[in-house]
Simulated scan of single mutants.
Amino acid sequence: MNWNQLTTVEQLQAIKEESFNQPVLIFKHSTRCSISSTALSRVERNWKQEAVGELKPYYLDLIANRPISNAIVEEFGVEHQSPQVILIKDGASVYDASHFDIRFEEIAETV
């Protein structure tokens, strides 16, 4: 799988616009948290592009870019969790999960 790095608040507007053409996934990861590392590893191990079609995955390093997470709360109305996945379609969050509730199979079903 190929992560797209989410490193600026300005990218959120582009992600919102992209989501009208293809679904977008944001994975919020804390590099200091073992639960976050486990959740990330599970998603990466189970990732099958054919199961999610044109889903575009973004990776957010929360330690390096916490203000972006705060902007996600405001832009998409999803309370901050870590780790967390947020699926964006047509400019809005349609699915989110955190901690050990993050499962590739559920992401694929929602896409």
Rank of each mutant, 00 (worst) to 15 (best):
M1A: 12
M1E: 05
N2E: 14
N2Y: 06
W3N: 05
N4P: 00
N4Q: 07
N4S: 03
Q5A: 02
L6P: 00
L6F: 01
T8G: 02
V9R: 00
Q11Y: 01
Q11C: 00
K16Q: 14
E17D: 15
E18Q: 14
E18D: 15
E18A: 14
S19V: 11
S19G: 10
S19D: 07
F20H: 15
N21M: 09
Q22F: 10
P23F: 10
P23H: 13
P23E: 02
P23I: 12
V24L: 06
I26H: 08
F27E: 11
K28T: 04
K28P: 03
H29N: 10
H29V: 10
H29L: 11
H29M: 11
S30Y: 05
T31F: 01
T31E: 11
R32I: 13
C33T: 07
S34Y: 12
I35F: 08
S36H: 09
A39M: 04
S41D: 12
V43A: 03
V43K: 07
E44H: 05
R45S: 15
N46G: 09
K48R: 14
E50D: 15
E50L: 11
V52F: 06
V52A: 03
V52Y: 05
G53A: 10
K56P: 03
K56G: 01
P57V: 06
P57K: 03
Y58V: 00
Y58F: 15
D61P: 04
L62N: 11
A64M: 12
N65V: 06
N65A: 12
N65P: 00
R66V: 01
P67K: 13
P67L: 09
P67S: 05
P67A: 03
I68V: 09
S69K: 11
V73Q: 10
E74Y: 10
E75C: 06
E79L: 14
E79I: 13
E79R: 15
H80D: 12
Q81A: 15
S82M: 07
S82G: 10
Q84R: 07
Q84H: 06
V85C: 09
V85T: 14
I86F: 02
I86W: 02
I86H: 04
I88K: 06
I88W: 07
K89R: 13
K89F: 08
D90C: 03
D90E: 15
G91Y: 03
A92M: 11
A92E: 14
S93W: 05
Y95C: 02
Y95Q: 04
D96V: 03
D96N: 15
D96M: 06
D96T: 12
A97E: 06
S98F: 04
D101S: 13
R103V: 09
E106N: 08
I107D: 02
A108K: 08
E109L: 06
E109G: 01
V111S: 05
V111T: 09
V111D: 07
